[in-house]
Amino acid sequence: EEEEKKKEEIARLLGVSKEDVERILKKNNLDIEQLLRRVQREN
């Protein structure tokens, strides 16, 4: 699934687990696209 791939990509870029990414998304109330763009910009 596309969303899972995005979570895995974010996890890889941040050096965290996919579960961490899911927690970040919930905690910050971000959607996956916003987080992915933010992470890609910083790297």
Rank of each mutant, 00 (worst) to 15 (best):
S17I: 03
L35K: 00
E8R: 10
L35V: 03
E42T: 10
V39R: 01
N28K: 10
E42I: 09
V21I: 09
N29C: 07
E42D: 11
L14Q: 01
D31A: 07
E22G: 03
E8L: 14
E1C: 07
E1I: 12
K5F: 11
L35F: 05
K26N: 08
R41D: 14
S17R: 07
Q40V: 11
K18H: 06
R23Q: 13
E2Q: 10
K5R: 14
L36D: 02
E2D: 13
L35S: 01
R23H: 12
L35T: 02
Q34E: 15
L35G: 01
K27R: 12
V21P: 00
N43M: 15
Q34T: 13
E8P: 00
L35Q: 01
E19M: 09
K27Y: 09
I32W: 04
L35E: 03
L14G: 00
A11H: 01
E22P: 00
Q34L: 05
L36P: 01
R23G: 10
S17Y: 04
G15D: 05
L14R: 01
E1M: 13
K7T: 05
I32T: 09
L30H: 04
E19R: 10
R12V: 06
V16F: 03
L14D: 00
A11Q: 03
K7V: 09
R23K: 13
E9I: 15
K27E: 15
R12Q: 08
L14Y: 01
K6E: 04
R23M: 12
K7D: 01
L35M: 06
E9A: 11
E9T: 12
K27M: 14
E3P: 07
K27P: 02
E19T: 10
E42G: 10
V16N: 03
V39W: 01
L13H: 08
N43T: 14
R37S: 11
L14P: 00
E8T: 10
N29D: 10
I32P: 13
E19F: 05
K27L: 14
Q40R: 12
I24Q: 04
L25G: 01
E42Q: 13
L13M: 11
E8G: 09
S17Q: 07
R38C: 09
K7H: 03
Q34D: 15
E22L: 05
K18E: 05
G15P: 00
K5Y: 10
E42P: 08
E8Y: 09
I10S: 01
N29F: 07
N43I: 15
Q34F: 04
R23L: 14
N29K: 11
D31W: 02
K6R: 08
R38K: 15
N43G: 12
R12E: 07
V16D: 00
R37D: 15
N29E: 07
I24R: 02
V16H: 01
I32L: 14
V16T: 07
L14V: 02
E8F: 09
L30D: 04
R12H: 10
K26R: 12
R41T: 12
Q40P: 02
K7R: 07
D31L: 05
E2I: 11
